[in-house]
Design a protein around this nucleic acid. Structure first.
Lengths: 144, 144
DNA sequence: TTAAGTGCAAAGGCTTTGCAGCATA
DNA sequence: TATGCTGCAAAGCCTTTGCACTTAA
């Protein structure tokens, strides 16, 4: 498929091509987080001609438009998710590999207090945890 | 220089070769944080034959022995620092590029409360901030 | 016609690995 | 002699870039 645009639709002035539309959908449907390779794999199953370059270029565009957030959760590759209104943090489980989102109001408080104490102007906060999730902790206890 | 060991010294049973000794020293002297490439550059100035592979292999060994911590501060390359007893966090300044360490007792509290609330077993915490440091904020105000 | 998106292939940056040689025990 | 560290080169992985083609305005 080559550069087919949908003239009725656009994202922030940029044409919503078939490729971009599908990629956005796939990220939405991914639920949690998806990396470029997996996104490419899923997109390829519907359109075998899509290129990895387009995936990366689209991801970058989506980020610039604020549609998608890039997460670096300590893996080799970046993960992407639809930007949500609600601030949330991530927990990566080493056992089952799941990425669990959770909220804590304390993190905002913490950053504000550091900002004040240290005199920083904070423009980006990176906070995530790794370990075993509730379910995996439970499974382990039951194994014994 | 090829594989010259110092029989008097060892780190946790592993021979402290001249290369490892120099690399450890360089990381110590780096003060804050250093990446593999810069470490290699500095090591090369004293020993032109040292290889980047040795740098990476040594860094991995140091990590396994708990001598060095790997930091992923959102850059493309990892940064390394001597492991310190005191827990601390990192702030990366976008203006001057400096990595500033700071402490806050709240982060431990925060993690403990999340652990309890969510039922996670947390084995690793990643928390760092980006923005403008105190000095750069000040310089900017004075520019006006 | 012009500007922009795409696929393809190549290149880029960071890191790891295979291999032969050498040092130590 | 056996183990393991080293340098070198090659490969690996993730990501970006150059180029020619194609589409829409």
């Amino acid at each position: 498929m080559r550069n087919i645009r949908n003239p009725d639709k656009a994202i922030a002035g940029y044409p919503l091509t078939a490729q971009r539309q599908r990629l956005l959908e796939l990220i939405r449907n991914a639920g949690g987080h998806i990396d470029a390779k997996e996104l490419y794999r899923r997109a390829s199953s519907a359109d075998t001609s899509i290129s990895l370059a387009t995936v990366y270029r689209s991801l970058r565009l989506f980020q610039e438009l604020g549609l998608v957030d890039e997460q670096r959760l300590g893996w080799s590759s970046h993960h992407y998710e639809i930007r949500s209104h609600a601030e949330h943090q991530h927990f990566v489980c080493h056992e089952c590999g799941r990425v669990i989102e959770f909220q804590t109001p304390l993190i905002g408080k913490l950053v504000r207090s550091i900002q004040q104490e240290q005199g920083f102007n904070v423009t980006r906060t990176e906070f995530y945890l790794e370990g075993q999730c509730r379910q995996c902790c439970k499974d382990k206890r039951e194994d014994i």
